[in-house]
Design a protein around this nucleic acid. Structure first.
Length: 422
RNA sequence: GGAGGGCUCGCAUAGCGGCCGAGUGCACCGGUCUUGAAAACCGGCAAGGGAAACCUUCGUGGGUUCAAAUCCCACGCCCUCCGCCA
């Protein structure tokens, strides 16, 4: 939710942002009108209510004829107050409805454009030259079969498309990655968290996932709860309606959870393997901090993501995601894309977003300083999303016979140097 | 799923239909005292909107009333007991 003060003082800022995102610019002017109407109705109601309060008080002490007369007036006033109140809440609601549709105001540094207009910030590592090594790389599906690590056929049989089993070293690989990620996060000052993945509507709404992203969210109608697509949701909502202390530095949480995505509208995309699935596990970093610290924190989150990828010894690049491809809460987003040899392409494996005060305003998460009580900033970043990281590790570290070298950092957690055909 | 109890300012509690946005204790902040601390004493201390007057909020929503924390209805959540269960 954007700040209404910004709307009044600098509506062009919001218009330009909506435009850059390819979203509805008219909403801004609709909101200005709705907000004015709302404030007017509020003032009217408050005046009437003040009158009523005063009158009510005098009724208590009055006697006899005077009392009857006062009661008559009060009765009439009560009716007026009631209708003014109804009007106020109606206008409040319609303003809120528009307000919730407007996305966060993009960072001036965010490249403007659609999905393809990202800016490449850097390349790290060099993709292996398999031709020079004299063999054709196998894709992760094939390697998964050779190692008996990934079973997509039985996944489909039991759970439908975009489902899979991790078995044997596949399952062990997940545990190793998670343990390494959590130990890295704890060393960096994160509080490790295992959050609920089934959440109530305010948590989902507050994090901005019921807007344009709603079609990708699983909803359990009977109980009116949602399955989260990322632990960002329960981590953000953890401090919902609280005043927290971020004056002395950011509060950081690392959540490990399953993530559920409907993947609606992606029917043709990534149908092979485990790049795009309905359920996966992920370690997510989440920060609450002062708004003025958000940009620096964003850089730190990116660095932690890079540290993890470096430890996996995988070539990757970092991109600055374009305005049209940002989530509604984010003002800027960096993606790390790992090299996938068999696709001859970089594919997103982690992502970090600066959401400034957008989520905190909705979730009512604030901090206090000398100037008063204000919304905090929130940021999130993937430390590791298991299936895609497994794809990257298997494909990049494979050997001609289908065995796979385990990155140094994972060896203590996995207890193996090499994954062997099973 | 069945039976009962509860939900008030960070925590714990008080609260008669108007004098209640709401008392007390703890915690917290400032001060006095002290070499320093503790204790004691004094003061402050819920949130939001508004320049202010003032308005809103006592789990949520509705109702009764001139007037609701207080009365009525529905729902939610928490606790205890029973049943089932990883």
């Amino acid at each position: 939710m954007i700040d209404l003060k910004t709307l009044r003082d600098n509506p062009d800022l919001i218009r330009n942002s909506q435009k850059a995102r390819g979203e509805n610019v008219d909403l801004v002017d609709q909101l200005i009108l709705a907000d004015d109407a709302r404030r007017e109705a509020m003032a009217e109601f408050e005046t009437l209510r003040a009158e009523q309060n005063a009158l009510s008080k005098s009724v208590g002490s009055a006697k006899g004829d005077e009392k009857t007369k006062l009661l008559e007036n009060a009765k009439e006033l009560a009716g007026k107050v009631k209708s003014a109140d109804a009007k106020r809440s109606e206008l409040e609601e319609s303003a809120k409805k528009i307000l919730l549709q407007i996305s966060n105001i993009i960072d001036p540094n965010t490249p403007v454009g659609g999905e393809a207009d990202f800016k490449i910030l850097e390349h790290i590592g060099t993709p292996r030259d398999f031709a020079a090594e004299g063999f054709e790389p196998k894709d992760h599906v094939e390697l998964g079969k050779i190692l008996k690590a990934i079973d997509t056929e039985r996944g489909a049989k039991v759970a439908g498309s975009r489902s899979y089993y991790l078995t044997g070293v596949g399952a062990l690989l997940e545990f190793a990655m998670v343990n390494y990620a959590i130990s890295q996060a704890v060393k960096s000052g994160f509080i490790p968290v295992i959050p609920p993945v089934l959440v109530k509507p305010p948590a989902m709404e507050g994090t901005g996932f019921l807007g344009q992203a709603a079609e990708n969210v699983y909803h359990l109608e009977e109980d009116d709860v949602y399955l989260v697509g990322t632990s960002e949701v329960p981590l953000a909502a953890y401090h919902m309606d609280e005043i927290i202390d971020v004056e002395n530095g950011p509060m950081r949480y690392a959540g490990y959870s399953s993530c559920f995505r409907r993947e609606a509208g992606t029917y043709g995309k990534d149908t092979r393997g485990i790049i795009r699935v309905h359920q996966f596990d992920k370690v997510e970093m989440f920060t609450f901090c002062k708004p003025e610290d958000a940009e620096a924190e964003h850089a730190r989150l990116l660095q932690w993501e890079k540290d993890f990828l470096n430890a996996m010894e995988i070539p990757y690049r970092v991109i600055d995601v374009a305005s049209g491809d940002l989530g509604s809460s984010a003002i800027r987003k960096f993606d790390c894309e790992a090299w996938v040899p068999t696709q001859n392409a970089y594919r997103e494996v982690t992502s970090t977003s600066n959401c400034t005060e957008f989520q905190a305003r909705r979730l009512n998460i604030r901090y206090k300083n000398e100037e008063g009580t204000k919304a905090v900033a929130t940021l999130n970043g993937t430390l590791v999303a298991i299936p895609r990281m497994i794809v990257a590790v298997l494909e990049n570290h494979q050997k001609p016979d289908g065995s796979v070298n385990v990155p140094q950092a994972l060896r203590p957690f996995l207890g193996k140097d090499t994954l062997l055909p099973a």
